[in-house]
Design a protein around this nucleic acid. Structure first.
Length: 294
DNA sequence: GGCAGTCAAGTACGC
DNA sequence: GCGTACTTGACTGCC
């Protein structure tokens, strides 16, 4: 079981999520920003390797505006060697990576323009992982999308558009249950119709459950991952008490995490900790899993 | 230097 | 029909 954290390492003092405003877009600004983001990504990957953290979510901001019509620059060509060498670090240490496009990616939207933009965004994400030379086990996770008052039709649109995606995107795409609209059962149905693996979000399953135990959900989701997809990915987080619904905890609650691990005992999976203090909690969880004293 | 408002992109929900 | 909540971190303009 690999333990990971998303996008940001607070111990290093750099960010791979630097961006800028659309109004100040220029090719020069783009190149400078991407250069800085890739430098930081390399530092983070090296830090992770040195600390035994073998799972990491790469930020969607790595190449700002990559899927936007304003961006005409051949960033992939310009940074080809950089991406390749980052991928070598990942492979050398047997690390795993993922990416998670944000809420604006909606394959099942009613508005075709939103669908077009979403497809472009997915192609950008798949391209980053392709440029790094990573296998199909490096995933791009999205939610099913909106319901639009008719869930069966909304799922139907998702399936139809999934089938139209380029193979390079489809091989990486996984669907994740969300906290309001699409439960694990819904995602399993989408998986049955598309073949896309289901990434279980433990916290979302708690607040938007389709019934059944966590253990059942883990096993059902795990069964949707084929050999080439690698071990199932799982997102783990928990509610910060007394805060707004959905707010993630500041630090991992190791007792709760241990209960989760106990439920996942015979399901081989890689776990992404969505916890505010990022790598600190990931280190604690990784020590717990490996049996190293805290 | 610090702070508050804003940022490419959307949906769901309450009123 | 309209405004707001939703999550999050970085940017930007203002003091």
């Amino acid at each position: 079981m690999r333990i990971g954290y998303p996008c940001i390492n607070r111990s290093i003092g750099c960010t791979s999520s630097r961006t800028f405003r659309l109004a100040s877009y220029s090719d020069r600004r783009l190149v400078e920003t991407v250069e800085s983001n890739l430098d930081c990504l390399e530092a983070v990957l090296r830090w992770n390797a040195a600390h035994g953290i073998l799972f990491f979510r790469i930020t969607s901001d790595l190449v700002p505006f990559a899927s936007h019509s304003v961006c005409k620059h051949d960033w992939a060509g310009r940074f080809r060697d950089r991406f390749r060498s980052l991928g070598r670090i990942v492979r050398r240490h047997r690390m795993r990576t993922s990416m998670h496009p944000d809420q604006f990616v909606l394959l099942n939207a009613l508005d075709e323009r939103i669908v077009t933009g979403s497809v472009r965004e997915l192609e950008y994400h798949a391209r980053v992982l392709d440029l790094m030379g990573l296998p199909a086990s490096a995933k791009v996770q999205i939610h099913v999308g909106g319901v639009y008052g008719d869930k069966p039709s909304a799922i139907g649109r998702f399936v139809e558009r999934y089938r139209r995606l380029k193979a390079a995107v489809r091989r990486r795409l996984v669907v994740e249950n969300d906290d309001r609209c699409y439960t694990v059962a819904d995602c399993l149905e989408v998986s049955r119709l598309t073949g896309a693996p289901v990434l279980l979000d433990v916290f979302h399953h708690k607040v938007n459950s389709s019934g059944g135990s966590l253990r059942d959900a883990l096993r059902l989701c795990a069964a949707t991952w084929q050999r080439a997809d690698g071990p199932p990915m799982v997102d783990y987080s928990s509610q910060e008490p007394g805060q707004r619904r959905g707010r993630h905890k500041e630090q991992v609650d190791l007792r709760d995490f241990q209960r989760f691990i106990a439920q996942a005992r015979d399901v081989e999976c890689d776990v992404m900790l969505e916890i505010k203090d990022k790598e600190k909690s990931a280190l604690k969880a990784a020590r717990l899993v490996s049996g190293t004293p805290q």
